[in-house]
Design a protein around this nucleic acid. Structure first.
Lengths: 205, 205
DNA sequence: CCTTTGGCTGTTGTTATATACAGTACACTA
DNA sequence: TAGTGTACTGTATATAACAACAGCCAAAGG
């Protein structure tokens, strides 16, 4: 299996990483380039920048472009839980991130971009129960048989995907639900992503 | 007694505080003014600024002036453990902060500014044991009888302070140690601070 | 030998962020 | 009824911070 942290770090890079950890622990903020430089006695903040790039390249951190103190430790990175989707409920925007779950995005293949909690029983025969969290890979491409996150106008739903010509069939995995038929010629249908995994928590409750 | 968190927060202020907590939990970074504003739908980042000031005034957070994302939750604020001082060991600079201990700075009076771990037995008769952590109030003023952090040239030591004219006596609280006599006329002596408290951890080990 | 990589210095442009100031509206209270 | 605090809008500005570019030096490796 072997996922998680790549550790081809040079000694110096490990020191930088440790400093970032320390900064988070002690100040609860990641450091700036200048702070790193001054802590290590660099005359130029760019030395810190280089180290950060190396750490990002090696997968130890991620850098939030343009954001002040935008250093994130991959080891405490998770996937954003974007919202809850039922049959017909509006999806929340990425900005309305509800929570983060500490899950390795690379656990799923293709990699998961965000999580979505499913409400309702419409996918129960696919083993997707009420309250389950779906790992979603963002894409507008779907192939027949995949479970997709689809947006029809303002409404978002999770269904199994089946295309026949210009007709798309969104099939609930529950015999009590009828398939949704969409003619892509005159109705707007957007594929938001495909389900690449599932997480079920709170099983003991 | 009554210290710690003042909770005269308005509902709105509590929401802001909760958002900051959430931001720290989810992104492991405090939010910017703009992020707060956009999360709450404020048209102006200044609304966030005002809330932050109110929260800072009420003691829920502290604001690091001029620093990007310089919001700190008081509830997870602590005192910096600056270094270790023995009789004659060099003190570490504030930048060489070793750790943070979650202790209310206002627990001590006057308030503690940093912590110092003491090595050695030179103050054992004052109840300061090897490994104890002293809470230090930064000041260059000391009165007779106080336990001070004194710097003589490059060396830092913790002793009881006694001034007689231009002579300063730094007295160890251990009969095996002789007092240090400093003539402030020709020797450099700096009072770094006075001990205002003591913390002993690891008593069960 | 040349090339690459790590680890730096030094400089500069852009933008993200903090923060001050002026003003509005509303609720509370002395 | 004037005064105060909360909760904002809107504008403006200084600077903190990111990030790109150009180099230098030493060690490693093919």
């Amino acid at each position: 299996m072997k996922s998680s942290t790549a550790t081809n770090l040079t000694p110096r890079q490990s020191e930088i990483l440790a400093f970032i950890r320390n900064s988070l622990e002690v100040f609860s903020v990641p450091p700036t380039r200048a702070e790193i430089a001054s802590a290590f006695g660099f005359a130029s903040a760019n030395a810190a920048e280089d180290h950060l790039r190396a750490l990002a390249r090696k997968g130890a951190i991620t850098l939030e472009s343009g954001s002040a103190r935008g250093i994130r430790l991959v080891e405490q990175l998770g996937l954003p839980l974007i919202g809850t989707v039922a049959a017909g409920s509006p999806i929340l925007a990425v900005e309305n991130r509800l929570d983060t779950m500490r899950v390795d995005p690379a656990l799923f293949s293709p990699r998961a971009d965000y999580l979505l909690r499913v409400r309702g029983l419409s996918m129960i025969d696919a083993g997707i129960l009420d309250g389950d969290v779906l790992a979603i890979h963002s894409t507008s491409e779907a192939t027949n048989g995949q479970i997709v996150v689809a947006r029809i106008g303002d409404e978002v739903t999770v269904k199994r995907f089946k295309r026949r010509g210009t007709m798309v069939e969104l099939i609930a995995e529950n015999k009590d639900f009828k398939p949704i038929l969409v003619n892509t010629r005159n109705e707007s249908l957007t594929i938001e992503g495909v389900a690449v995994g599932l997480i079920r928590d709170g099983m003991m409750r």
